[in-house]
Design a protein around this nucleic acid. Structure first.
Length: 273
DNA sequence: CCAGTATCCTGCAGGC
DNA sequence: TGCCTGCAGGATACTG
């Protein structure tokens, strides 16, 4: 569910919300997620540790404490991190709960269990393929030089390519649709059949839509919220995602939806070519 | 190596 | 009111 802007918003909220706090206990249930969740192991590493900072790489969050190593969290499709008072009723799918020294709790809730939370010992995060295989960050200044030749070398639809985390890290289904619409590129067009200048434009529009979404605190479609329960306000700026059958905001043509790589893709047949 | 599909899981909306 | 189907901000194992 959450893409880079939502994860970045969560990161910023945690940096403030966890500032100066210590983990006084760890609870939850060791359910099967994208990787097995090992609550006792995380408890052994984290209990008594003081939060220091929250980092982000692509859609991955890395929480650091006053001991070597870090807790990696991915929210998958339905994952949420919530800062709650411990008196608040526990949600059904709160798989991992960190008790905090101010009496509150950080709860990792993920009904679909496509997310993950794992502890990395010192140096381990550099070896983990989920992180080491990630492509360039959309906010990287070098994006428009780096990305176009990579996409141009591939035969897949550009939509699949910008969803490929090994090429560019952090773009998901919402911002892929928005960036392609802004760049005027048909999502089914193959990378190798798209000119380098047009792919450069796509790189620029991808970064721009992500910058704008971060500034709005991300997009709330169904249930995304920051750890303190705030919603993201970028939804009002979406031009095509979820708007199939409605007129294109640029030319008025009816927006179509197609499935690419198993994912719904909305686009304008007139201005995306 | 690359490209495309199937799959993990729960919840919810829509059709009958 | 159900029951069934398909779809949902994702990543990856597997197939050809």
């Amino acid at each position: 569910m959450p893409e880079l802007p939502e994860v970045e918003t969560v990161r910023r909220a945690l940096e403030i919300g966890l500032n100066g706090l210590r983990v006084t206990g760890v609870g939850g249930r060791s359910v099967m997620m994208r990787r097995p969740l090992d609550v006792p192991f995380i408890a052994a590493k984290l209990t008594g540790c003081k939060f220091s900072e929250a980092r982000r790489r692509g859609k991955y969050l890395l929480l650091d404490f006053d001991r070597p190593g870090s807790l990696m969290v991915h929210l998958g499709m339905s994952g949420r991190l919530m800062l709650c008072n411990s008196s608040e009723p526990m949600l059904k799918h709160a798989h991992l709960v960190l008790d905090l020294s101010d009496g509150r709790e950080l709860r990792f809730v993920d009904p679909r269990r496509f997310g993950l939370a794992v502890w990395f010992g010192p140096g381990e995060e550099n070896c983990d393929p989920s992180l080491s295989d990630l492509g360039i960050e959309p906010l990287d200044q070098d994006l428009e030089n780096h990305l176009p030749p990579l996409l141009h070398a591939r035969r897949s639809p550009v939509k699949s390519l910008i969803l490929d985390q090994r090429l560019i890290a952090g773009v998901g289904n919402i911002y892929a649709a928005e960036a392609l619409w802004r760049a005027g590129i048909r999502p089914t067009r193959k990378g190798c059949r798209t000119s380098l200048p047009r792919l450069g434009r796509l790189a620029v529009e991808t970064r721009e839509v992500i910058v704008e979404a971060v500034a709005q605190g991300g997009t709330t479609i169904r249930d995304y919220a920051t750890p303190s329960g705030d919603f993201g306000y970028f939804a009002v700026k979406l031009q095509v995602y979820g708007k199939e059958g409605q007129p294109c905001p640029r030319c008025g043509e009816i927006l179509k939806d197609t499935r690419i790589a198993g994912r719904t893709t909305v686009w304008c047949p007139h201005c995306q070519r």
